[in-house]
C-alpha cells in the first residue's frame, strides 16, 4: 500500500514538472553539468538547462569564485559546441583564465555595457536565441518582471542563463536555482608549499522542486571534485614558498 502511494506521489511530481516550465529534452536528462552527485539535488536528477541560475556575491573574491564555478558548468555545456555570451559592465574577466576551466576563450563573446537596463535588454535578446550554449550576465539588480521575461525566453529557446549579482537587494525573482559560492582554503598534495587547485564552498540556497544543500568542491584536472576533508588552516603561519 505504502509503495503504491509513494509511486503515485512520484508520478504526480513528474507530471507537475513540465507544468512548471521544466521540459526535459531527449539527451538532457541525467546531465549533471560536471557536478557529480550534486545532481540529486535538482528536479529529475539532472542539472536544469534552459533555466536561469542566480549567484549571490559580496566581494570581488566571490565574483571570481562564482565565475570559476560557472565556467566549469558552461564548459560541460559547451562540450557539444556552441558559443557563450558574457555580458558585464567592466572589463574584469580575464579570458586566458577560462582555458583552465575547459573553455576555449575565443568561443566567448564579451559584451560590455554600462547601464543596468541595457544589460537586461541584451540578456533577454541573447536568451531568445536558440543555439547559444549559455548566457552569463553580471548585474546587481534584476526586477521580478525582468526575471519572468528571462524565464519565458529560455522556455522557448532552451538556452541556459547565469546571473552573477553583487550585493543584491531584490530577492523576489523567478530563478530556478540560487547559489552562493565562496572561496575555500586550498590544499596541496603532501602538504607541499604553495597554492593548490581552486576550491569553493558551494551553497545551493534555493532550487525549485529540489533540495538545497551545501558542498565543498574543487576544480582539478578539468573537472569538479568533491572535497570530504577540509584543509586545516595552518596556524603556524606562512609556509615556505616553492
Amino acid at each position: 500500500m505504502n509503495t503504491t502511494k509513494a509511486h503515485t506521489i512520484e508520478q504526480l511530481r513528474k507530471d507537475i514538472l513540465p507544468l512548471q516550465g521544466f521540459k526535459p529534452v531527449a539527451g538532457d536528462s541525467g546531465f549533471d553539468g560536471g557536478l557529480g552527485f550534486i545532481k540529486q539535488a535538482f528536479p529529475g536528477a539532472s542539472f536544469p538547462l534552459a533555466a536561469i541560475h542566480e549567484f549571490f556575491c559580496t566581494g570581488e573574491e566571490d565574483v571570481s569564485a562564482s565565475a570559476g564555478f560557472i565556467a566549469g558548468i558552461v564548459s560541460a555545456i559547451m562540450r557539444k559546441g556552441g558559443v557563450t555570451l558574457w555580458i558585464c559592465s567592466s572589463q574584469m574577466i580575464f579570458p586566458p583564465a577560462l582555458k583552465a576551466f575547459g573553455i576555449e576563450p575565443d568561443k566567448i563573446i564579451f559584451i560590455y555595457l554600462q547601464k543596468e537596463k541595457e544589460i537586461l535588454w541584451a540578456m533577454e535578446e541573447a536568451l531568445k536565441c536558440e543555439g547559444l550554449a549559455a548566457v552569463i550576465a553580471q548585474t546587481q539588480e534584476i526586477s521580478f518582471t525582468a526575471s519572468r521575461r528571462f524565464q519565458l525566453a529560455v522556455e522557448q529557446s532552451r538556452v541556459t542563463g547565469f546571473i552573477i549579482r553583487r550585493n543584491p537587494r531584490n530577492l523576489a525573482t523567478t530563478c530556478v536555482t540560487r547559489w552562493k559560492i565562496t572561496p575555500l582554503s586550498t590544499n596541496t598534495e603532501n602538504d607541499l608549499p604553495g597554492l593548490g587547485v581552486p576550491r569553493w564552498n558551494v551553497e545551493l540556497l534555493k532550487v525549485r522542486n529540489g533540495t538545497p544543500g551545501n558542498w565543498q568542491l574543487e576544480w582539478a584536472k578539468g573537472r569538479f571534485r568533491h572535497v570530504y576533508k577540509l584543509a586545516s588552516i595552518n596556524s603556524e603561519g606562512q609556509r615556505k614558498t616553492g
Binding site: S64, M92, I93, A97, K99, A100
Partner: peptide
C-alpha cells in the same frame, strides 16, 4: 591559449 602559469579569473 597558454595553461602553464596560473592566471586570475578577474584582472584589474
Amino acid at each position: 591559449w597558454k595553461l602553464d602559469r596560473p592566471r586570475p579569473m578577474q584582472l584589474l
